Simulated assay, not measured.
Amino acid sequence: MQQSKQTYTVEEAKRKLEHYCAYQERCHQEVVQKLIQMRMIPEAIDVIVVHLLQHNFLNESRFAKQFASGKFKIKHWGKNRIAFELKKKDISKINIQEALNEIEEEEYLELFNAIAEKKAESIREQNVYKKKKKFADYFLYRGWESYLVYEKANELIK
C-alpha cells in the first residue's frame, strides 16, 4: 500500500524550499510552516532554515520591504496596517521600520488623497456624520493614520 503523505530527505526539502523562496519572497514563519507541512523534524527544519539564510533565499529585511511596497501600491494599505501584518509574521521592529521608511512620504500622501477623493464621492449617504463615519472606517481598517483620515473627512465631507 502506498503512503498518503510523501516524505522528504533534508536535501530534497532544501531544493524544494529554495524553489519556494525563489518564486516569491517569504518570511521565516512561512518557511517553517511549509517545512512542518512537509513533516520535517525540528532539527531538519533548523538545518534547512540556516541553509536558506546562508544562501540568501531567505532575507527578513528584503521580505519586509517587498511586502510593504506591494501592500501599499496594490492593496492601498496605510503604514499602520502594513506594520500590523508584518508584526503578525514575526518580523523584527527594525525591519518593519526600515520597510515603512522605503515608502516615499510624498507618494504616500498623493495616493491617500487620490483614493480619499474617490471614496468620498462613492459614499451614497445623505447624513454628513454617517458619511464621515463610513469614510473613516474604510481608511482606518486599511491602516491609514487617524489624523490623516479625520482631517481629510472634514475637508471633503461637509
Rank of each mutant, 00 (worst) to 15 (best):
Leu111Tyr: 12
Leu35Ile: 07
Asn56Leu: 07
Ala99Val: 00
Lys16Asp: 08
Asn113Gly: 14
Glu85Ala: 08
Glu98Ala: 06
Glu121Gln: 13
Val31Asn: 00
Leu58Glu: 01
Val32Lys: 05
Lys130Trp: 09
Lys34Ala: 10
Leu17Ala: 03
Ile74Met: 06
Cys27Asn: 01
Ala64His: 02
Gln24Phe: 09
Lys88Val: 02
Asn59Tyr: 06
Ala114Met: 13
Lys5Ser: 12
Phe84Trp: 10
His19Arg: 11
Leu58Lys: 01
Glu98Gln: 00
Glu110Phe: 12
Gln54Val: 12
Ile45Ala: 10
Lys93Asn: 11
Leu52Arg: 03
Glu60Ser: 09
Glu117Ser: 06
Gln33Trp: 09
Ser122His: 05
Glu104Lys: 09
Leu109Gly: 14
Trp77Gln: 12
Phe72Trp: 06
Lys87Pro: 01
Leu111Trp: 08
Tyr8Phe: 08
Ser92Trp: 09
Ala120Trp: 01
Tyr108Phe: 14
Glu125Tyr: 05
Tyr23Ser: 12
Phe84Met: 11
Val50Ile: 15
His51Ser: 07
Arg15Asp: 02
Asn127Lys: 12
Gln97Asp: 04
Lys5Ile: 12
His51Val: 08
Ile45Gly: 06
Glu104Met: 12
Glu104Ser: 15
Gln97Glu: 11
Asn80Pro: 00
Ala44Asn: 13
Glu117Ala: 10
Ala68Tyr: 04
Asn101Thr: 07
Glu106Phe: 15
Gly70Arg: 14
Phe67Asn: 03
Gln3Thr: 11
Glu106Leu: 15
Lys16Gln: 06
Leu86Met: 00
Phe67Lys: 04
Gln37Asp: 12
Phe57Ala: 01
Lys119Gln: 05
Lys14Gln: 08
Glu43Cys: 13
Tyr129Asn: 14
Ala99Trp: 00
Lys14Trp: 00
Ala68Ile: 06
Lys14Phe: 03
Lys16Val: 06
Phe72Ala: 04
Arg15Tyr: 03
Ile115Asp: 10
Glu18Gly: 00
Asn101Cys: 10
Ile48Arg: 02
Lys130Arg: 15
Tyr20Cys: 04
Ile74Ala: 08
Tyr8Val: 01
Lys118His: 05
Tyr108Asp: 09
Glu60Cys: 05
His51Tyr: 14
Val31Cys: 00
Lys89Tyr: 02
Gly70Ser: 11
Ile96Lys: 02
Arg124Ile: 11
Val47Gly: 10
Thr7Gln: 10
Lys87Thr: 04
Lys130Gln: 12
Lys118Phe: 05
Ile94Leu: 13
Glu104Arg: 13
Glu18Trp: 01
Ile115Pro: 05
Gln66Asp: 15
Lys118Met: 00
Ala120Ile: 06
Ile94Pro: 12
Lys65Tyr: 05
Asn127Val: 11
Glu106Gly: 15
Lys119Glu: 09
Phe67Val: 02
Asn56Glu: 11
Glu117Gln: 10
Ile41Glu: 15
Cys21Pro: 01
Phe57Asp: 00
Lys88Glu: 08
Ser69Ala: 07
Gln24Ser: 11
Lys118Ile: 06
Gln54Ile: 10
Ala99Gln: 04
Phe63Pro: 02
Leu109Glu: 15
Thr7Met: 11
Gln66Arg: 09
Val49Tyr: 05
Ile82Gly: 03
His55Asp: 03
Leu100Asn: 03
Ile82Ser: 02
Ala114Val: 11
Ile91Asp: 02
Asn59Val: 05
Ser92Pro: 08
